[in-house]
Design a protein around this nucleic acid. Structure first.
Lengths: 124, 124
DNA sequence: CACATTGTATGAAGATTGTCATACAATGTT
DNA sequence: AACATTGTATGACAATCTTCATACAATGTG
């Protein structure tokens, strides 16, 4: 996990890059539910950034429901809620939001959908 | 072009979002070499941001060799823009991130992908 | 030439980001 | 109990981002 983390000097705040990369690792399955995240201090040392900056990223992840933090123990990938059967309303709302996000990054909504299909299909 | 521009409140600086979206449009061919970009003032008004912020984005694009600015005339896509960035990495990263978001909300990644396909394909 | 349009520039103010230094609090181990 | 580990918190400082207000400079048009 730690080895995958990289920072770029492209104007995007460090904590945002970190937040997004970890979120991506979770979404991709590299980090399974319940798995322990690297220590904030580890991340800070490896990436040569401040502890506060890592904390900000982790806090954002917790706010998004992706991560749970336990003092003295560590941070863990949240156990995802089960069974999404018929949540069409939520799905559509999320889809609209995601589509806007894709556009905002210059990513084709079509290609994004394809990539998502591969993620859910080839699970890994 | 102007209609495609959108901003998000996700921690990424506005001028970076703008810079990346226009760069993506150029890379994808939506803006052909020599084509005129929307006026800085137009963009500022449409997106309800400051002229200085737009200027920063345009300046970054010029520094990257994607755009040429001519005082009194406007801004134009460079005649020989550098090789378009590879968007596949970004697409995959966004997909993973979005998948995490979906899981955290209990939304099926598969169904989300389907909803996105409808949005881009038959989506009106 | 007069005028509108468009890019360029500056300075001030406030919010955000990142670092540095330091400490406290909860957990688990010895 | 003592200790190491890990998350949580604060205050100060510099740099960056954004807005606001206000200009100046180059280009093209009537």
């Amino acid at each position: 996990m730690l080895e995958q983390l990289t920072l770029q000097d492209n104007g995007v705040p460090i904590y945002v890059q970190l937040r997004d990369q970890i979120a991506a690792a979770i979404g991709r399955g590299s980090l399974a539910p319940g798995a322990r995240l690297p220590t904030m201090r580890e991340v800070a040392v490896i990436l040569a950034i401040d502890l506060n900056t890592v904390q900000r990223a982790y806090a954002a992840l917790e706010e998004d429901g992706l991560v749970t933090m336990v003092q003295g123990r560590g941070s863990f990938v949240a156990e995802t809620p089960p069974a999404p059967r018929n949540r069409r309303a939520e799905t559509d709302a999320l889809a609209a939001k995601v589509a806007a996000q894709a556009k905002a990054q210059g990513v084709s909504v079509d290609e994004l959908a394809q990539a998502l299909l591969k993620l859910s299909g080839g699970g890994r």
